[in-house]
Amino acid sequence: MQISVSSTLTVYHDGQFWVGLAERVESGRYGVARIVFGAEPSDEEILQFIVSEWEKLTFFGDEPTETSKPARNPKRRAREASKVLRQPAMSTKAQQVLADQREAMKRESVRARSQRRADETEARFERRKLKRRQKHRGH
Rank of each mutant, 00 (worst) to 15 (best):
1 M>D: 13
2 Q>Y: 04
2 Q>N: 08
5 V>Q: 05
6 S>K: 12
7 S>M: 09
7 S>C: 12
7 S>N: 07
9 L>T: 09
10 T>Q: 01
10 T>M: 00
11 V>C: 04
11 V>K: 00
11 V>W: 02
12 Y>A: 00
16 Q>S: 00
16 Q>C: 00
17 F>L: 04
18 W>V: 00
19 V>M: 03
20 G>D: 00
20 G>L: 03
22 A>N: 01
24 R>F: 05
24 R>V: 13
26 E>H: 06
27 S>C: 06
27 S>E: 12
31 G>V: 03
31 G>P: 08
36 V>R: 03
43 D>Y: 09
49 F>V: 01
51 V>W: 06
53 E>M: 05
54 W>R: 02
56 K>I: 02
59 F>S: 07
61 G>M: 13
62 D>L: 14
64 P>V: 07
70 P>C: 02
72 R>G: 14
72 R>M: 15
72 R>W: 12
74 P>F: 06
78 A>K: 14
79 R>L: 13
79 R>Q: 15
81 A>M: 06
81 A>F: 10
81 A>K: 06
82 S>D: 11
82 S>K: 07
86 R>H: 14
86 R>D: 15
86 R>P: 05
87 Q>V: 02
87 Q>G: 09
88 P>N: 12
88 P>V: 00
92 T>Y: 00
92 T>H: 05
94 A>S: 10
96 Q>N: 05
97 V>A: 12
99 A>W: 03
100 D>T: 14
100 D>V: 08
101 Q>C: 12
101 Q>M: 10
109 S>D: 04
109 S>M: 10
114 S>V: 10
115 Q>T: 06
115 Q>I: 06
116 R>H: 10
118 A>T: 07
121 T>N: 11
121 T>L: 10
122 E>A: 04
125 F>D: 05
126 E>G: 01
126 E>H: 09
132 R>Q: 12
133 R>F: 06
134 Q>A: 14
136 H>I: 06
137 R>V: 11
137 R>H: 11
139 H>W: 10
